[in-house]
Simulated assay, not measured.
Amino acid sequence: MPATAYSVDVRRMETFSAAELYALLKLRVDVFVVEQACPYPELDGKDADALHLRLLIDGETAAYARIWRPENGAPRIGRVLVSPDHRGKRLGAALMREAIRACETHFPGTPIELSAQSYLQQFYHSLGFSPTSEEYVEDGIPHIDMRRAGAGVAQRA
């Protein structure tokens, strides 16, 4: 099955219109809170300091990831999702490749971190991420921390 054609949009929160931001946050709540049945504070105060990466198909958000850099830390990719309306179109790997590219552009030479749902560990490993923690439970879902060396940065064993 060929990959679906999409456009990439990477920007900061303040550049979204009210309608665009509403649609994006609604999608995140629909997936992370409702679909995954995880009552947690989805609006965590980090969006204003983050880059928001969207894969768009016909102007609609088909996949999304948030890139956030904690103070004095490695950039983190999080809130990774493919819209229920666009699943099965091979967008997950495309989204992550674009997120890695955005990290390398905005934070060159730095490693990239993420907190992966444990069942996706092999998927993230295929993209160059290695575990950095034991499995832990967050919001009722098993997770594992993972890290990918930045361009020009040696991977830790």
Score class of each variant (00 low, 15 high):
Val137Cys: 08
Leu120Val: 03
Ala63Val: 13
Gly88His: 06
Ile141Cys: 02
Arg66Ile: 12
Phe107Trp: 12
Thr132Glu: 05
Ala65Leu: 07
Ser133Ile: 13
Gln117Leu: 09
Leu55Arg: 07
Leu114Pro: 10
Ala65Pro: 03
Gly78Ile: 05
Leu114Ser: 12
Cys103Phe: 12
Pro70Met: 10
Leu95Trp: 09
Leu127Trp: 02
Ser115Val: 08
Ser126Gln: 05
Asn72Ser: 14
Val82Gln: 00
Gly88Phe: 11
Asp85Tyr: 01
Leu127Phe: 09
Phe123Pro: 07
Gln122Asn: 08
Gly78Gln: 07
Thr110Val: 11
Ala63Thr: 13
Gly59Thr: 10
Gln117Arg: 08
Gly73Trp: 06
Thr61Ile: 10
Arg66Leu: 12
Ser126Thr: 04
Leu127Ile: 11
Glu134Asp: 15
Ala65Met: 05
His125Gln: 14
Leu114His: 10
Gly59Val: 13
Tyr124Arg: 04
Asp139Asn: 12
Leu53Pro: 00
Gly59Arg: 08
Glu135Ile: 15
Cys103Arg: 01
Glu113Phe: 00
Ile67Trp: 04
Gln117Ile: 08
Ala74Glu: 15
Ser115Cys: 13
Gln121Met: 09
Arg87Gly: 12
Ala74Gln: 13
His106Ala: 15
Met96Ser: 05
Leu56Thr: 07
Ile77Cys: 08
Met96His: 05
Tyr124Asn: 02
Leu53Tyr: 09
Glu135Gly: 10
Pro111Asn: 13
Val80Trp: 01
Ala116Asn: 06
Glu138Ser: 13
Leu55His: 09
Asn72Trp: 00
Pro84Gly: 11
Phe123Glu: 07
Ser115His: 11
Ala93Thr: 13
Gly140Asn: 06
His125Ala: 15
Ala62Trp: 03
Pro75Val: 07
Lys89Asn: 14
Leu81Pro: 01
Ala94Thr: 11
Met96Ala: 10
Asp85Leu: 14
Glu113Gly: 09
Tyr124Ser: 02
Gly128Leu: 12
Leu120Gln: 04
Thr105Tyr: 01
Leu56Met: 15
Ile112Cys: 10
